[in-house]
Design a protein around this nucleic acid. Structure first.
Lengths: 153, 153
DNA sequence: CAGAGTCAGTTCCTTCAAGGAACTATCTTG
DNA sequence: CAAGATAGTTCCTTGAAGGAACTGACTCTG
């Protein structure tokens, strides 16, 4: 699809970007996550071309991020659902929300608020270390070569 | 730059994608974060066209994500540094790493390991609620209309 | 029955952005 | 002086996005 083969790089960031490294796919994910599952609704809500929507949906299904479910047999009609793989990708959207709210919302403030079920409060995500549970941002880390690293990346 | 004006949408995700919604910008951020600051090094490490690199760097500077610092006056030469705004965007990369390690690394395992300064262990980021500090994933949230929401989005 | 409407795409043409290669300008070094 | 290094810029080609129209399969209404 893209001209550069990001999926073939020995880098998890690049491989993730191979799947979702253009604007429409994350926005499709956003809308499916928010409850929009059908082609026409997605197209209307996103205001994108039907051609590109069809392509992106097909791609996201191929990548295992979305699943098609038949909701009508005559004619065959599908709706699109998040897979587990896709649900985990939605975490990325939450981090985008936080950054976007912080740096692009201006005086208007955040367009969407996120209420955490467990505590009932409006909140954002924070990043924590999976091991010690303390805050962990990009500046708190050393990078080390891992088992999946190889030459010719 | 993009054909659809994502930056004009009343959505923090879309506005973030306006800044960084193609593969090369996140990868440039990755390399600047990892210590590569000069044009030639970035170009060689990324293997991207000089034209697109120059454009992306200029864009990221315009967006306040990177800053140019002159490291040589004759001829004028710049290196590229993360701003605070850019550093916060690197959190996005950490979440991409986690997803990519989980779903795209296969048997080879993660190409890069991340060691948390504070605990010294190899770890990943987890998302937590900014208010109650309990785990918070995309599935743990209700969406509400916020102050920056307006019609004609 | 025919026509209109709805839905989920597909096709075709135009435009824009990426990619690749070469070029330009400014320096340093031998 | 020529070669090499660096940071771009220019030009041409190619691939992807966008927009509009079309297609096919249905339902409903007059």
């Amino acid at each position: 699809m893209q001209r550069t083969q990001f999926g073939a790089m020995a880098c998890s960031i690049a491989r993730t970007l191979d799947v979702i490294g253009e604007p429409w796919s994350p926005l499709i994910l956003r809308d499916v996550y928010a409850g929009t599952h059908r082609f026409e609704q997605l197209q209307r809500g996103l205001g994108m071309s039907r051609k590109v929507l069809a392509e992106r949906l097909s791609w996201l299904v191929d990548q295992g991020v979305l699943a098609r479910r038949e909701y009508c047999a005559r004619p065959v009609r599908h709706e699109y659902l998040l897979t587990d793989k896709g649900r985990e990708l939605c975490d990325l959207l939450l981090v985008m929300v936080r950054w976007g709210d912080r740096w692009t919302a201006g005086e208007a403030g955040p367009p969407v608020l996120y209420r955490h079920h467990a505590c009932g409060r409006i909140s954002h995500v924070e990043l924590r270390c999976s091991e010690c549970e303390q805050p962990m941002r990009a500046t708190d880390i050393d990078l080390l070569s891992g088992p999946g690293a190889h030459r010719g990346s």
